[in-house]
Simulated assay, not measured.
Amino acid sequence: MMQNLNFWVYNKELRFDQFREELEKIFDIRELFHDTENYWEYMFGDSKKFQCRVNISRPNQWEQNNLSDSVKKEKNEIPLHLIFYGCNPAFTDQIGNELNHYFKLPVYQGIVSKIPDTDYGYNFIKQRIYNKIDFSGLIKIK
């Protein structure tokens, strides 16, 4: 049964232009279309690799200071939210590991729900964490 898979990475400094091309390669997306709304900045495209639609979003830079505390993490970091619409759940670990490998940051997977009676408040409830650390470039063997 296909479902929507939610992943997120906390990093306020990430810019879409920094990772757009690489994510297109990783997920075999012909082109990620970039757009902004009053509140959200997002990219979307179709992943041939996972046979689903991908949406990558986060609040616009100018809206990030207005986020509710429930959205902010302990260091005022902003979630970069990645949604795989209608995806086979068998791909969950593969997607999480590939995101973790690329971003070199913990990647969270779980449930994202709107906070009632708010315009833009969301709860990010983690179910899994992908946090493999690669030390291969740091260790020198003689």
Rank of each mutant, 00 (worst) to 15 (best):
F19P: 00
A90M: 15
R15V: 09
L67I: 07
L32A: 02
L14Y: 05
S57I: 11
I129N: 09
K72Y: 13
F7I: 11
H81L: 13
Q127T: 14
G137Y: 11
N100T: 02
Q127E: 14
D93G: 12
N131W: 04
C87T: 08
F50A: 01
K132N: 07
L99T: 06
Y120H: 05
K142W: 06
Y108M: 05
K25S: 06
E21R: 10
P106V: 07
E24N: 05
F91L: 07
K142A: 10
G86D: 01
Y85G: 00
Q51N: 15
I139W: 00
C52H: 04
C87S: 09
T92W: 04
Y85H: 03
E21M: 08
F44R: 13
G137P: 02
Q3I: 13
N76V: 06
N11E: 12
T118N: 05
P116H: 05
R128V: 15
E24H: 03
F16G: 13
N88Q: 10
Y42D: 04
S57F: 15
L105H: 08
P106K: 08
H101V: 12
F44I: 07
K49L: 10
L14C: 02
D46F: 13
L80M: 01
L32Y: 04
V107P: 12
N65T: 09
S113Y: 07
E13I: 01
K25C: 04
T36Y: 04
G110C: 06
R15L: 10
K49M: 07
L32C: 01
Q18E: 12
L82Y: 01
G45A: 06
N65Y: 05
Y108S: 06
Q94F: 00
L67G: 04
D69Q: 12
V107G: 09
Y120L: 05
D93K: 14
I111P: 00
R53M: 09
L67Y: 02
G96C: 06
E24M: 11
F7G: 09
Q109L: 15
I125G: 03
W8T: 08
E63N: 13
I139P: 00
E21H: 08
D35C: 04
E63I: 06
Q3G: 13
W62Q: 15
G110I: 07
N123K: 09
E41C: 03
D69V: 13
C87E: 05
D119R: 10
Y130R: 09
Q109H: 15
I26H: 07
K12G: 03
L14P: 01
S136I: 12
E22V: 10
N60W: 00
L67C: 11
D35K: 09
D17T: 13
